[in-house]
């Protein structure tokens, strides 16, 4: 059965997370815990924290994430292609070149429009 190779992954998912938890529990039992309001203050370079931690982020992050999503989808398509490449003709390379070039066009567009600038 082809699922056999996944049993190990499944077991690891079930059991593997315990290993990082063990030192955490050790720390939980061994370490002293005497919190007080001053200790529990949020760290902000020695001054009182002003406002909520939820500050609004710049749209730039979102652009990079979007460009990434587009590329990520492309990369996943590339995997079966690369895998079968030895059994494919030269035509496959041409097709993939078209596939990649279309995205490169988009990347160049993004670049020229200045969306890849941080400031």
């Amino acid at each position: 059965m082809t699922l056999n190779e996944w049993i190990f992954v499944g077991l690891f998912l079930m059991a593997g997370w315990m290993l990082p938890v063990v030192p955490l529990l050790l720390g939980y039992w061994l370490a002293p815990r005497r919190p007080n309001p001053v200790k529990k203050q949020i760290y902000e370079c020695g001054v009182q924290t002003v406002g909520s931690a939820w500050v609004q982020f710049r749209a730039q992050y979102y652009v990079f994430a979007l460009v990434f999503v587009a590329f990520d989808v492309e990369l996943v398509f590339l995997f079966p292609w690369a895998l079968a490449y030895n059994k494919l003709g030269l035509f496959a390379l041409f097709e993939m070149a078209v596939f990649i070039l279309l995205l490169v066009v988009a990347l160049v567009y993004t670049w020229r429009k200045g969306a890849l600038e941080w400031s």
């Binding site: 652009v63 979007l66 460009v67 999503v69 587009a70 989808v73 492309e74 398509f77 097709e95 078209v98 596939f99 990649i100 279309l102 995205l103 066009v105 988009a106 990347l107 567009y109 993004t110 429009k113 969306a115």
Partner: peptide, 17 residues
């Protein structure tokens, strides 16, 4: 469909920009 997917990705990117 494969090449169309690439076109779609391109459109999504340009739209986002």
């Amino acid at each position: 469909p494969f090449e169309a997917a690439s076109l779609l990705l391109m459109a999504a990117l340009i739209g986002a920009v």
